[in-house]
Design a protein around this nucleic acid. Structure first.
Lengths: 312, 312
DNA sequence: ATAAACTATTAATAAAATCTATAGTAATTA
DNA sequence: TAATTACTATAGATTTTATTAATAGTTTAT
């Protein structure tokens, strides 16, 4: 049994197709066929059920592939140890970011990071929290930036910053004349929300729930982006809540629509999260340092109350 | 990097000697030299400092070997998965047993186990708890039978039975006429103890401490085996405590010297313990089943109070 | 029936692991 | 200090293994 064979098995299990897996492994398809056969012969079990289209794992094959993933992950850490020893920070790094953080945070740190660590090939994907968690667990992402705490067993969190919620109150809204908003002022019924799947939406709902016991979950106006929320709000369709960093992007003339919360301001906790195996930890450290350095200049709130991003 | 190379590195790290390691790996010494060189070239680090006699690991070499151990362990589990799938119970299995359990428990289950699982090559070693813990951690033992709970992070415990302490009170001893002993009757100063390193000794000390706040740790009479304790006791040098299973071996004519405790009788918890990775779990299950089946016939105490085997 | 989309097999080749024999290198002993 | 011991490294031959291109075989869909 070789690590190469296990990597081949992983690729086949992932793509459910010898030919595609072979491409990904940069070898020809017969190479995979023979190597998998050797592995199956040596272990004397059938790993793949080739009679199914597309190919499926047998029951024992599933267990073997699961364990193969562990082995390959552990094996990758050897290079990691060597890199750490040499102070080398480089290689491919796949970072996930949730949609409500992506457009504001990414421009703030990306240039900085690339300049400081030119050998790291960052591959950034916009994904929602659920997708992020599963991809970190299965090793398709090295780390992600998301709202926390997430209470996920395999995943570690390291807080980057606390981002307060800011109210966006259009003209003619009942709260327009309040200088500082309080949570108790909020009413879910005139609140514009993001579409399902955004944890920022869950945060807002949790926040409103904190003062109202029951909320019937049928909201009318929803949107896929915060930009659109602002436009809908300007149309007089209700108020909305923005993450603080988004308010820095709001056009000058719309600034009078912003209302900050009375302290302790409700806020979301934003963290860099990664697998508990701490693979590529030196790059995660580098990201942490760059991002928290950049954000320190932009956010300086102390007295906040963290709102959970999880739907309950 | 191959699993074979990692195994070679582990063997060299263990024996601190290429030639001996080569023997253990059933290859010639040049094979190890070249494979380790290849590994070092590929990673571009030096793993072994050959200038030292005997050979030493470099700093990064230590980390790599530690990780190699993980990888090889995880790789071994593939065969484990296959064995489990096939219901195969066999192969070499290294079991440690502490000295105060070995002579009484081993004869009770060994025949039974060998008959039921003839393909398992049991290698049994008598070791104290400390040695057992380190050997399970580093993979030199597959499992062990010891007094628990041990509160060790990497090790799981599965309780086999509870074994009450029984007092051995020689003629002319102050407790001779008591039918049932109570913990408060005990006095560490006329108690014969095993030598340092036995957890049964610690158990007895903990038991005596439970009624006396302070004990100055200078005991006079100590011995390396329970047999000797009984003899010393017969000489009138004091009373002693025996694990219940030992009392079944006490000669007929000495039986009148035994005194059971009033319920709840102090007892030690005896468990099969193994690494949290659950390697060779099917053999551990088999051992568990055989031993607990055998012991169920011999021990039937319900109402016991467990005494910790750890020194505090 | 035929094509499309696969995986398996074959035979040749390239790459590797391993072996035997021996050279090199310290430390130890006479 | 020369010889011995106890190692590891190197060289060259050999065996084993991984990979490839070409192609045969299989299943599914049309």
């Amino acid at each position: 049994m070789t690590i190469t064979q296990l990597k081949y098995a992983l690729a086949i299990a992932e793509h459910q197709n010898f030919t595609k897996a072979a491409e990904k492994c940069y070898v020809t398809q017969p190479t995979l066929s023979t190597q998998i056969q050797k592995l199956e012969d040596e272990l004397d079990v059938v790993i793949f059920d080739r009679s199914k289209k597309p190919i499926e794992l047998t029951e024992v094959g599933r267990k073997i592939v699961f364990q193969a993933r562990n082995i390959v992950n552990e094996a990758d850490r050897i290079q990691d140890i060597v890199d750490q020893q040499k102070g080398f920070i480089g290689g491919e790094f796949r970072l996930g970011i949730i949609p409500t953080i992506m457009p504001t945070l990414l421009p703030m740190f990306l240039q900085n990071f690339i300049k400081k660590y030119p050998k790291v090939k960052l591959k950034i994907e916009e994904l929602n929290t659920e997708e992020i968690l599963s991809r970190i667990s299965d090793g398709h992402l090295d780390a992600a930036i998301a709202a926390t705490p997430l209470e996920s067993d395999n995943i570690k969190e390291r807080v980057l910053y606390y981002e307060p919620f800011v109210a966006y109150v259009p003209t003619n809204h009942r709260l327009r004349d309040k200088k500082n908003i309080e949570v108790s002022d909020l009413d879910i019924d005139d609140m514009l929300l993001l579409e399902d799947g955004h944890c920022f939406r869950e945060g807002v709902i949790n926040l409103c729930k904190s003062f109202k016991d029951h909320i019937d979950d049928n909201f009318q106006l929803e949107s896929g982006s915060i930009e659109t929320l602002i436009k809908l709000s300007n149309e007089g369709l209700g108020m909305t809540l923005l993450p603080y960093l988004h308010t820095l992007d709001v056009k000058e003339k719309l600034n009078p629509n912003l209302r900050h919360f009375k302290e302790p301001s409700p806020a979301r906790e934003v963290s860099i999260i990664y697998h508990k195996s701490e693979l590529k930890m030196q790059i995660i450290d580098a990201l942490y340092n760059v991002i928290s350095g950049v954000v320190r200049g932009a956010i300086a709130f102390q007295n906040v109350e963290i709102i959970s991003p999880l739907s309950k």
